[in-house]
Design a protein around this nucleic acid. Structure first.
Lengths: 362, 362
DNA sequence: CGCAGCCATGTAAACGCTTGCATCGGCCGG
DNA sequence: CCGGCCGATGCAAGCGTTTACATGGCTGCG
């Protein structure tokens, strides 16, 4: 006798009235189980830990899944496991080669471990960074990758409150407490500046990007400053660019800088685009590089080495940052503790654009 | 004996033994409700449709949320609403300015409507594209943005089966049926080639990237071919680069090309990096541009206009692609139907690198 | 030959929200 | 003064998985 089954769930949309609802929600685990003649638990196990399910059932289940075109629902899974299998990353921008490369590597490494990378960019706006991180936390990411050491206090609070492992990239600074992976920005430009000084330069110009909301650039600028003042060189002609990486603007700034009474004999640029702009304009002005002026940049893009005068620069190991960040965050997710800081040593790449000044200076 | 109460939910982690479990699951909607002395339904409504809840309660609830630091669980919400509030986008790479820019705009536009952009890259590998899309579908994205018209059949099947609205970007092709937003690649290079022909060029060289898994590049190459054969020009010296956008490799190819008996008087390059490499090498060889050889590229990056001889190119309106793609996918999500195709007209940017050949040819 | 133990499987509760429906006071018009 | 209606709130049933625990059939050893 068919006693009314106490169906808790309705999977067949059994409308007693004749109105068959068409908008069927796509197949679910339940449907697979039914079609395969097993319980939902078994299906779940078949896909999550295939080895504890009998060969026969596993194959049958796989066939059914394939046939029904079932796609597991990550939301349901996340809800159930309290694990999302996702890691969030917020970069200031993606139109910058280093960040894009790090993001790509990161995604690659995470994917290999079964994690998804959720990517967003803050456009150098701390508020937006916070907003993006919040979205990620809502989505239950298991870890977060950030850029830089400075974040809004709400962000720090959010992360610690929710106990989401996070890591700051593109920075390394003994002084700060947070976990970080990247170059020691300050030291990098300290070294660059000392290199120029050791070549004999005394009038050293600087073309730099804005350091607002950019602790990396600020640190580097501080490095320049450190080295200069260590040699009693305090005042130097310098220009801050409005745009982040505009070749055109760098040209304008260089021209202005070289048109003064006693132009610098060397110029340090905040990034590769500035350096490229500086070189192009200097050449257009008929100056010789490095004869009249040495130029050095920061970070390396292909064009730097292909221009008529290849430009010296600092190469940031963004690939390494990606792999280290990935392994760090994965380790933390899996409960292992990791070194809190890791320095990715940048490489000083010397090319033809830097040389001793033509005539020794006071 | 203390009869076990039939607690459905454990929110207080009431371990009868003295061992207080510390790993408290972070605060939930339930805790907020309790603290505010209202039902969970009211809290839910207070945050989702604030206007149907009394002012007083709303304020009280907001205060409690703030105080408890509650972050709603997107997974639970998604499970419940069958809406994720996320849109996925898979680009071939992010290290390419156009894609990065489109992604940024896309994120921006979606955010404004309360949607999150999930970003991934396929590294020009259809398999990986499929994998990423599958991940997105599992995560329940409400829409998907892709690049190009050609995808694995499984991908198409997956999307149609799960009824996920999707849009192909960076392509526009009357012939194909799919929805797409972008430039008409074939026509763009048909026009470029005709322009060179109209200048009087007859020996036109081509430096191109591989067209494997890149229907956009393939279409553009076809456009070149169309125009040439329309003028009875069938054979032309051409070189396919191994790397996608290597200035260095382009230099090699150009040198090889210009070292033949009858070198081309004009060269069409598959992208801006090829064009930059071509110019730099030509200049290094002592050739004059456009005197000895005209050069034209595809897509516009700042360096193109800053080199000693500014390079003619085609500007792809990647911003527009981003905004259109966003509004299209949002419209589809909200149930509105949209135009299935939209052409983002590319702009032919003529600079100093193109001119009639020095001496008229046969 | 019997029972402990083990393996493969099933049962059902729980994950943290949303939302249809029930409920409960007013308030307004008759 | 009363009934109906409406707006605000509470109740509880899901949403689609996972997983602790129960079950039941075997195996192997005493």
């Amino acid at each position: 006798m068919t006693s009314a089954p106490k169906r808790t769930r309705t999977s067949k949309t059994g409308t007693p009235t004749g109105t068959e609802i068409v908008a069927r929600t796509s197949v679910g685990l339940r449907d697979v189980a039914k079609a395969a003649g097993v319980s939902t638990a078994t299906v779940s196990r078949a896909i999550n830990k295939p080895d504890i399910v009998s060969e026969e059932l596993r194959l049958r289940i796989e066939a059914v899944i394939e046939h029904l075109g079932w796609v597991p629902d990550a939301a349901a899974r996340a809800l159930s496991t309290r694990r999302s299998g996702a890691v969030g990353a917020v970069f200031p921008t993606l139109t910058h080669g280093d960040f894009a490369r790090t993001a790509t590597i990161l995604q690659h490494e995470l994917l290999a471990e079964g994690f998804t990378l959720l990517l967003a960019c803050s456009e150098y706006d701390p508020e937006q960074e916070l907003r993006q991180v919040r979205k990620f936390v809502e989505r239950g990411v298991d870890g977060i990758v950030l850029v830089g050491n400075e974040h809004l206090p709400e962000l720090e609070k959010l992360l610690s409150r929710q106990k989401v492992p996070s890591i700051n990239t593109f920075v390394y600074n003994q002084a700060t407490h947070g976990r970080s992976i990247g170059p020691d920005n300050r030291k990098a430009l300290f070294d660059v500046t000392n290199y120029l000084i050791s070549l004999g330069h005394r009038r050293i110009g600087v073309i730099w990007q804005s350091v607002a909301n950019n602790d990396r650039a600020a640190e580097r600028l501080a490095g320049v400053s450190d080295a200069l003042s260590a040699h009693g060189l305090s005042a130097w002609p310098y220009q801050i660019a409005k745009e982040l990486s505009s070749i055109g603007e760098a040209r304008t700034l260089l021209r202005r800088m070289m048109s003064t009474d006693s132009p610098p004999t060397a110029i340090i640029c905040g990034n590769s685009y500035h350096a490229v702009g500086a070189e192009l304009e200097a050449l257009a002005m008929g100056l010789s590089i490095p004869g009249d002026v040495s130029i050095i940049g920061y970070d390396d893009i292909e064009i730097m080495s292909e221009l008529p005068v290849p430009i010296s620069t600092v190469r940031v190991p963004s690939d390494q940052i990606g792999t280290r960040a990935a392994s760090h965050i994965l380790a933390r997710i899996l409960g292992r503790e990791e070194d809190t800081q890791f320095e990715c040593k940048p490489e000083l790449v010397l090319r033809a654009s830097t040389a001793p000044p033509r005539s020794p200076q006071a």
